[in-house]
Each structure stands twice: as structure tokens, then as C-alpha cells.
């Protein structure tokens, strides 16, 4: 056995298992979904009828698809803003402000991440319950008359009502990510800035942000991708896309089409569309957030 051969064998021993598993559980399903998207198939019989791009043409003329896209990006936009602002604030507060009990807060803020998203959604369903829920009770106390707003049942509020649980559930993870980034910034930078008379805000914008920009970028891309794929769970438990498609998102519409209305081909086409959409969005985001990397030297 030559050294070169040994070397490639060694490398292969690391790559192959991953490759096999990846192909099996990620690559094959994607290919299969693309294949199915060209068929008119109920998902429960042998009959698969090839219709070419028929499903995609139908999507083009389906108004609910457009609504779902708009809702998806609405959620993404506010989730990015909400999660990043709050996570950033917490991360800075817990690292830079030398407050007491920082580790306690770190655990508390991270806690929602340990809960399943389904549990979170059920919990918030109770909070939003029009006549028995916590939120309306508190509002009633404040305004001194009975408030019975159906948060999830009125199309004016329902989409907004999905945001707090989604943001609440997301903060912890990104806060930890940013804390780690901030902690890797040398303390000497802050010290010299302080000597030069830079206040906390100046330090934040001139030192912290540029030096953690890579992590911020990664976080935003992560939020975008997980929202495009993962809004399903929260919508499924809290509203099922209702009322009247007011909270419909692509992920749930896919499920509804495939498993409740028996158009598996159409559902697969939506899946392919989500894939394309995620790729495009990520590419655009990478472009938009391009900055000269600042490195600590």
C-alpha cells in the first residue's frame, strides 16, 4: 500500500459515511421531490400521470401561492429584525455591561430553545385565547373593560400574532452565537477605545458590530432559511393557515395540498419552489451583506 493510497483511504473513511447518509436522506428526497413535481399524483395510488410543468403553471395562477410568499417574507423580515435586535441587545448587555447574574439570564433567555416549537405554539395558543387567555386578561386589566380580541381568528392580527412566539423561540440560540463572537474580541480594543473617550454606543457601532459581522451574517441567513422551511410547525399548531388563508405560508400550504387535499404532485412542486426560493434569497442576502471583513490583527 503506497502512502498516497493510504492517505486517500484515510480521507475516504471520513467522507464516505457522511456522503452516503447525506445522499440517502437529503439528496435522494430532493431528487425524488423534483421528479414527483412533474406528475399529477394523489399520493395514495399507483396512478401517476405525467403532466410536465403543469403543476408549476398551476402555481403561477394560484393566488394563495402569492399570499403565502408574501406572508413568508413578512415573517422573515420581522423575525430577522426582531430576533437580531433583541439577541444583539441581550448579548451585548450580558457581555459588555458587567451586570450581575449574567449567567442566570443567559440560561433564562436560552430556555425557549430547549422547548419544542410545538409546545411553544400550544402555549401561545393559550395566551391568545380570546376569552380565557392571558393576553386579553392583562389588556382588560389595563383598559378596565373586557377585551375579547380573537388574535388568531381575525385576519387583521393573526399574522402579527405569529411573530412573538416565533421571535421568542429564536432569540436564545442567536444570543449565544453572538455572545461567543463578542467574547472573542480582545478586551484591549475596548480599553483603548474607552481611553480615547468612546462611549458604549460608539464602542458598539465601531468595534462590536464590525468584529461580529460574520456571525451576524450567518445568523441572518440561518433565520431566513429556517423560517422558509420551518414556519410550518407554528402555523400548523396555531392557525392551520387560517382564517381564510390569512396566515398561509408555503410550508403549510405544501402540507395542506399534499396530505389534506390529496395533490402530492402539486405539493412537491411547492417544495421545489421553496428550495429555489431559499437559494435565491440566500444568494441575494450574501450580496447585500457583503462588507469588507475586519479582522483583529
Amino acid at each position: 500500500m503506497t502512502t498516497k493510497r493510504k492517505r486517500s483511504l484515510f480521507i475516504a473513511s471520513f467522507i464516505l459515511p457522511t456522503l452516503v447518509l447525506y445522499s440517502l436522506f437529503i439528496f435522494y428526497p430532493i431528487i425524488r421531490a423534483i421528479y414527483i413535481s412533474f406528475f399529477d399524483w394523489s399520493g395514495s395510488s399507483e396512478n401517476m400521470n405525467y403532466i410536465g410543468f403543469g403543476n408549476f403553471r398551476e402555481m403561477y395562477s394560484d393566488p394563495i401561492i402569492y399570499k403565502a410568499i408574501a406572508n413568508d417574507y413578512f415573517l422573515i423580515f420581522w423575525k430577522v429584525i426582531g430576533i437580531m435586535t433583541i439577541a444583539c441587545f441581550f448579548a451585548v448587555a450580558l457581555t459588555r455591561f458587567r451586570m450581575r447574574g449574567a449567567s442566570f439570564y443567559r440560561v433564562v433567555f436560552f430556555f425557549p430553545n430547549v422547548l419544542s416549537i410545538v409546545v411553544i405554539a400550544v402555549l401561545w395558543r393559550f395566551i391568545y385565547n380570546p376569552s380565557l387567555g392571558l393576553l386579553n386578561d392583562i389588556l382588560s386589566l389595563i383598559v378596565q373593560r373586557e377585551v375579547e380580541i380573537p388574535w388568531l381568528g381575525d385576519s387583521r392580527y393573526s399574522l402579527w400574532a405569529l411573530l412573538p412566539p416565533a421571535i421568542w423561540a429564536g432569540i436564545g440560540f442567536f444570543m449565544i452565537l453572538l455572545i461567543a463572537a463578542i467574547k472573542s474580541i480582545p478586551a484591549s480594543l475596548y480599553e483603548s477605545a474607552e481611553i480615547d473617550g468612546a462611549k458604549q454606543w460608539k464602542q458598539f457601532t465601531k468595534i462590536t458590530i464590525p468584529l461580529i459581522w460574520e456571525q451576524v451574517k450567518v445568523s441572518i441567513v440561518l433565520i431566513v432559511i429556517t423560517s422558509l422551511n420551518g414556519s410550518f410547525a407554528i402555523v400548523s399548531v396555531m392557525t392551520e393557515g387560517g382564517p381564510d388563508n390569512a396566515t398561509q405560508v408555503l410550508g403549510y400550504y405544501l402540507y395542506q395540498m399534499g396530505f389534506k387535499q390529496y395533490h402530492m404532485g402539486y405539493a412537491s412542486a411547492i417544495g421545489v419552489f421553496i428550495l429555489v426560493l431559499s437559494l435565491i434569497t440566500t444568494a441575494i442576502l450574501q450580496r447585500l451583506m457583503k462588507r469588507d471583513t475586519v479582522e483583529v490583527s
Binding site: P150, W151, G153, D154, E240, P243
Partner: peptide, 20 residues
């Protein structure tokens, strides 16, 4: 009941048996 839109079947049945 204006709340109806937000309720799934269990929620609405609970409202009903609780005489809301």
C-alpha cells in the same frame, strides 16, 4: 361569538361547556 375564528374544536367546546 367573535372568538370563534380563533378557536379549534376543543377550544370552542370548552367555551360551550363552561357556559360562555
Amino acid at each position: 361569538d367573535k372568538a370563534s375564528g380563533a378557536l379549534n374544536h376543543t377550544d370552542s367546546q370548552i367555551q360551550f361547556v363552561q357556559h360562555k
